[in-house]
Nucleic acid binder design. Structure first.
Lengths: 223, 223
DNA sequence: GATTTTGGTGAACGCTTGTGCACTCAACCG
DNA sequence: CGGTTGAGTGCACAAGCGTTCACCAAAATC
């Protein structure tokens, strides 16, 4: 028993080897998290579809069969990873929205937040970007669904920034355009060396400005 | 011997079993193509990193070891698939450029060409889209390099369409923006049901218009 | 304190995997 | 015609795979 779930890290926050009992539920949750983290790490340079249950188990330090106490299959695990990753993404969106809305330039702020979160939750963003197209069908679907939700939310946000003449369809088209570009920017950020990072970010700011100028003008001209 | 490379399909174009000799080189090329095609088909619903040499061999109808007569490894095969796929993409770009340049709307034409080629070379475009992020490192790099080349070519094309005040940097930023959007549109097209296809295409046209209006105006305003 | 629950164990199964090696036999070439 | 070449074969191996099953011991429950 007692799996080698190192999980948290070396220090923890209690130096003394106090070793308080730790309930069964806590322990289970701990190895569960360890499995999730191991999977995220291991599939980083391949894909979920190439990830083996045994490799995950070995990384965590449990026997392969113990895996089934937590997940039915790798695909099942994948769906949890989708949720986890989109939790990160939504945390980022919250940060974006939290920036002072009457600040001179929303774009500068948003890109900065994106850069920061991409660096901090690198594995999560890479996971989404990779499995969105290469993952098992169910995972691909789940990711697609989540992105669509984000798109819809952005559309309602945009409604407050554009002329009232815009239709819902117009909003969805622009929203989709922005999300598509943001995905592209994020992917560029992910495969950029640390030194190229600010270069990519600056380019992204310019591009978003180009896009917003066009998006807003396009419609008001067509009225 | 005599592998079961069905390759072409049932009918062929010569009904009589004339069976002319076929040189050794021809035969080798034929199974080589069969391997490439089989790999493209098999990794369609997973990824190169999950593709097994044996599965490819079985699909082609040869014994696993015969694979090595043509490729060193799956990754080696992958690099060939990259070249093949980008041959398709470049054929598309040629078609795009071939559309009458003084035609009223380049965008409408370009999207139509994109839709057509995406349908026709579905497997190639899916391959690029998937392996670009999920493939073996060498494959990812090769794809990234090819996309960068396309980006540069587009930049020189754009130079003839924008005010002469634009710098090379401006051109590259806009080019990158357009390519990023086109990649996004292609991916939307790939995962769209046939019935949604024209809807995605219409949206794409609107988005490209938004983007070009913004891109061109943004710079002339900043002068 | 006795009983049930349950996360983790370890051996075993039937497959698939990549790769090595000795082989065949038809196309090729001198 | 005789010798060489090389695409494809067939077997073998060790390693890895997902999954099964009976089992254990500690936590949880009664």
């Amino acid at each position: 028993m007692t799996p080698a779930v190192a999980a948290g890290g070396p220090g923890g926050h209690g130096a003394g080897a106090q070793a308080r009992p730790e309930s069964r539920g806590e322990r289970k949750e701990r190895t569960r998290r360890a499995i999730i983290e191991a999977a995220l790490t291991l599939c980083e340079d391949s894909s979920l579809v190439a990830l083996s249950l045994r490799a995950v188990a070995k990384e965590v330090g449990i026997v392969p069969t113990a895996f089934y106490r937590h997940f039915d299959s790798i695909e099942d695990l994948g769906l949890v990873l989708v949720e986890d990753s989109f939790a990160s993404l939504r945390a980022m969106l919250r940060d974006v929205r939290a920036t002072d809305p009457q600040f001179r330039d929303i774009i500068d702020q948003s890109v900065s937040v994106l850069v920061e979160h991409t660096r901090e939750r690198h594995a999560h963003f890479e996971f989404i970007s990779r499995e969105r197209r290469a993952g098992p069908p169910a995972v691909r679907e789940a990711i697609g669904h989540q992105i669509e939700l984000v798109e819809r939310e952005l559309a309602t946000d945009l409604a407050r920034l554009v002329p009232p003449s815009w239709t819902g369809e117009d909003l969805r088209v622009l929203s989709n355009l922005i999300v598509t570009l943001m995905v592209g920017i994020t992917e560029a950020l992910l495969s950029a060396a640390p030194s190229e990072e600010t270069e990519v970010a600056d380019r992204a700011r310019t591009q978003l400005r180009m896009l917003l100028v066009g998006g807003l003008q396009w419609r008001s001209r067509a009225d």
